[in-house]
């Protein structure tokens, strides 16, 4: 089936099988920052924002993306122009193997869009659907809180995920 949607600000058209998963389509389209760790919604590595809401692309059908706005980690920022969340992850030691990191930054972006001043517990709750086996989460929480401070100091900073309801 044919469908089109916005991927990181760019309108894409794709042809997907009815039972194709969103994660497979996204990776086929070159969004290799979307990782798969389990396929059952238990790890969060495949996290994306769908119309600003944090969802799992392993539990979405590609067909469900039609007409939506998708944001993946690469859509938050790049090495040359990182999003404050991404820079905070790098600077606060929140990255080790890095396989969970794109999904973690998506969870963080969804949090900061609705809660600009999260407590450490808020940050832990927000990333509690994203497993990390390397860090013990301490520095990830550090990074999320540091990014929150930076974003709230700089009113120009924008985070996708404005419509997240959680």
């Amino acid at each position: 089936m044919k469908l089109s949607f916005t991927l990181n600000g760019v309108l894409v058209r794709a042809d997907a099988d009815p039972d194709e998963r969103a994660v497979d389509l996204l990776r086929d389209l070159g969004a290799l920052d979307v990782k798969e760790g389990c396929g059952t919604g238990e790890c969060g590595a495949c996290s994306v924002l769908v119309d600003g809401v944090h969802k799992l692309s392993c539990l979405l059908l590609a067909a469900q993306l039609a007409g939506r706005e998708l944001t993946t980690a690469a859509g938050l920022g790049t090495v040359a122009a990182p999003h404050p969340i991404q820079r905070a992850f790098a600077e606060h030691g929140a990255v080790q193997c890095g396989f969970c990191t794109p999904g973690m930054t998506i969870a963080a972006a969804a949090l900061l869009a609705r809660n600009p001043e999260p407590s450490r517990l808020d940050a832990r709750r927000a990333i509690s659907g994203n497993l990390c086996r390397c860090t013990g989460y301490v520095k990830i929480v550090d990074a999320v809180c540091a990014a929150a401070s930076e974003l709230s100091e700089a009113p120009g900073g924008e985070t996708p995920g404005a419509e997240d309801q959680a």
Partner: peptide, 9 residues
């Protein structure tokens, strides 16, 4: 229930 993305879906 579940986790934030599970609750969102």
């Amino acid at each position: 229930l579940g986790s934030p993305p599970i609750r969102n879906m």
